[in-house]
Simulated assay, not measured.
Amino acid sequence: MTDNINTPTDEYHVASLVAYCMQDQIGEVTQAINAIEGAEIHATSVEGKIVLTLEGDSHKTIGKRMDQLRIHQGLINLSPVYHQVLDEGQ
């Protein structure tokens, strides 16, 4: 079995997620999301719900970016909704 962690791929991954954070930390959580490469916020609510997408070149990249968010103390829950993979080499 080979380890292809550093091997570039022709894949393009996009995942949509719903984050739920503490109402008094919406600003901090949105800043944390915006600081992640390939992250984009599409909607927020005053109740603390945030709809976002993550883009990357592999499942592993998406997972790492999700892990970066999960450790934020203001985040209560992070739920994946959709994940699409496109082969840009075709």
Rank of each mutant, 00 (worst) to 15 (best):
T2S: 15
D3F: 15
D3T: 13
N4D: 12
N4H: 13
I5Q: 11
N6Y: 04
N6K: 06
T7P: 01
T7D: 02
P8I: 10
T9P: 06
D10S: 14
D10T: 14
E11P: 04
E11C: 08
E11L: 12
E11Q: 13
E11D: 14
E11I: 05
Y12N: 07
Y12T: 08
Y12G: 08
H13C: 15
V14M: 11
A15E: 02
S16K: 09
S16Q: 06
L17D: 02
A19P: 02
M22N: 12
I26P: 05
G27N: 09
G27Y: 01
G27P: 03
G27L: 06
G27D: 11
G27C: 03
G27H: 04
E28S: 08
E28G: 11
E28D: 11
E28Y: 06
V29R: 00
V29F: 09
V29E: 01
V29D: 00
V29Y: 02
Q31H: 09
Q31P: 03
Q31W: 01
A32N: 05
I33N: 03
I36Y: 09
I36R: 05
E37Y: 01
E37I: 03
G38C: 10
G38V: 09
A39P: 00
A39R: 00
E40W: 00
E40S: 01
E40V: 04
I41Q: 01
A43H: 15
T44E: 04
S45A: 03
V46A: 12
E47P: 09
E47W: 08
G48D: 02
K49S: 15
V51R: 06
L52V: 03
T53Q: 06
T53R: 07
E55T: 14
E55N: 11
E55A: 12
G56F: 05
G56R: 06
G56M: 05
D57Y: 01
D57A: 07
S58P: 05
H59F: 14
H59S: 14
K60R: 11
K60V: 15
K60A: 15
I62T: 09
I62Y: 05
G63C: 14
K64N: 15
R65Y: 10
R65W: 06
M66F: 10
D67Q: 13
D67L: 11
Q68C: 13
Q68F: 10
L69A: 04
H72P: 12
Q73H: 12
Q73T: 14
I76A: 07
L78C: 03
L78Q: 00
L78A: 04
S79Q: 07
S79T: 10
V81Q: 08
V81S: 08
Y82I: 05
Y82T: 07
H83F: 00
Q84Y: 11
V85Y: 08
V85F: 09
L86S: 07
L86M: 11
L86P: 00
D87P: 07
D87I: 06
E88D: 15
E88Q: 15
E88G: 15
G89L: 13
G89H: 14
G89A: 14
Q90F: 12
Q90K: 12
Q90P: 11
